[in-house]
């Protein structure tokens, strides 16, 4: 009673996928049991992601510590800054990267380039040691 099935010539077409399930054939890889996870550079540079922040460098005053213009510093606030650490510091309204000198009650921020004299912190200077530099990275290309 329904007669023949006749498709309308201008009916909308619905394409159905034929490749949604991949079937593999052949011999399984002999290395399959030895698959190691690949290396993650984050894991190497960032030990504590929650307290880690990035700061790009502008200038040449830290070249002696192999920190160059355009490098991005990895700064970890969970490390307590002490004498000898390279730090990001806020001084008089500016963000600086310097080596922290803290001996015998004397505090100074020291550059790693003889062109720049040490910045001795007196009571008049506002110093905030923001965080300790734990690494740096840069894309070359």
């Amino acid at each position: 009673m329904f007669g023949h099935f006749v498709p309308l010539p201008d009916a909308p077409r619905q394409y159905l996928p034929i490749d949604s399930t991949k079937v593999s054939a052949g011999f399984p890889s002999p290395a399959a049991d030895y698959v190691d996870r690949s290396l993650d550079i984050n894991e190497y540079l960032v030990r504590n992601p929650v307290s880690t922040f990035f700061f790009p460098v502008e200038g040449d005053s830290m070249e002696g510590a192999e920190i160059f213009d355009g490098d991005i510093l990895v700064v970890d606030r969970s490390i307590k800054a002490s004498h000898g650490h390279i730090v990001v510091a806020f001084v008089n309204g500016e963000r600086l990267v310097k080596r922290l000198y803290h001996r015998a009650g004397k505090v100074a921020l020291v550059a790693e380039n003889s062109k720049y004299p040490p910045l001795v912190i007196h009571d008049g200077n506002e110093l905030t040691v923001w965080g300790v530099v734990v690494g740096r990275f840069k894309r070359m290309v």
């Binding site: 991005i72 963000r95 990267v97």
Partner: peptide, 13 residues
């Protein structure tokens, strides 16, 4: 903290 172009720059001067 969320945009590579917005990272806060530090001066090495």
């Amino acid at each position: 903290t969320t945009d590579w172009r917005g990272l806060p720059k530090v001066k090495a001067q």
